[in-house]
Amino acid sequence: MNQVVSDLLHPLQTPGKISPAALDMVKMLALGAMLIDHVNTLLLTTPEPLMYALGRMAFPLFTLIWAMNVQCTPERLQKRANRLWIWAAFTQPVFSLAFAGHQPWWALNILFVFAGVTQLLALQYRYGKKGLMAGILLLGILVWPLSPASYGLSGLMLAGGLVMVTGGKTPGVQRTGVIVSGLSLCSLNGVSHLLGLPADTLLFAMLPTLVLPLMAVSLSIQLCPDGCPRFMPRNFFYIAYAGHLLILLILMHVW
């Protein structure tokens, strides 16, 4: 398990190993996986297991890219957190309407995961251990409303673990991050169904969560070698996330 996670993270820890265009390609694959997953959930009468499996790579990929970028400029952490809180709040009404009947009204969208962990990092950077404790308390409050639709504790642990791996200053911190990330990936999808439906859970939930992100990163590196420029506009993810939910909400009412 930890070796799979290490293989996934190694190219993204090595300077010059992955081009800016490859990172944009990873984002595009994650966006495609998310769209497939949400179409499967919201528009299809009978969800397709294969579409569900493809959707499992979206959150790990988004979290990986976020973790790589979030600590590049520590002095801007609070500004990053503010931007994420604004986009999360802006997207929430559309998210709630789109998933009405699928999730409880109080379930939070995935941007709150990134906003919460970014806020923790900003508080730790500014106030040290006291800020870290305040950030942990904040995440503790977010666990419950994030659990129905946005991975809850497992999602927050994955975000924290990947931050330790990609931004850890010592091998010990990075190793701890690999362990936390590996455990989080294994518990991210379907672990509660493992005893009742072991084959389906492994095939369509747990294995795709572990393997497909690695394949997506490897494919992106091959398709976009060094020297390829970026091709996605800045902050495109926020617009695409809110926008695709709005489009799906409209389609649900005219389908």
Rank of each mutant, 00 (worst) to 15 (best):
M1R: 07
V4G: 02
L8I: 03
L9Q: 08
H10D: 14
P11T: 06
L12D: 05
L12C: 06
T14M: 12
I18C: 01
M28Q: 13
L29H: 09
A33F: 06
H38T: 07
T41K: 11
T45D: 14
T45G: 15
M51G: 10
R56F: 03
A58Q: 02
F59H: 04
I65D: 06
W66I: 10
M68C: 15
M68L: 15
M68G: 14
V70M: 03
Q71K: 09
T73E: 14
R76N: 07
R76C: 11
K79I: 13
K79H: 14
F90T: 11
A100S: 15
Q103D: 11
A107G: 08
F112Y: 02
F112L: 04
L123M: 13
Q124H: 14
G128W: 07
G128P: 12
L132V: 03
I136C: 13
I141G: 10
L142F: 07
V143N: 06
V143G: 10
S150Q: 09
Y151T: 13
L153Q: 11
L156N: 10
G160H: 05
V165A: 06
K169L: 14
K169R: 13
T170H: 00
P171L: 10
G172H: 09
V173L: 03
Q174F: 07
Q174R: 05
G177E: 01
V178F: 04
S181N: 03
G182W: 07
L183H: 07
C186P: 02
S187W: 08
N189L: 02
G196Y: 05
D200F: 05
F204S: 12
M206N: 04
P208Q: 07
P208K: 01
V211G: 08
M215T: 10
A216D: 06
L219Q: 00
Q222V: 12
Q222M: 15
F231N: 07
M232F: 14
M232K: 12
R234S: 14
R234G: 04
F237S: 05
F237N: 09
F237R: 00
I239D: 09
I239C: 11
L246T: 13
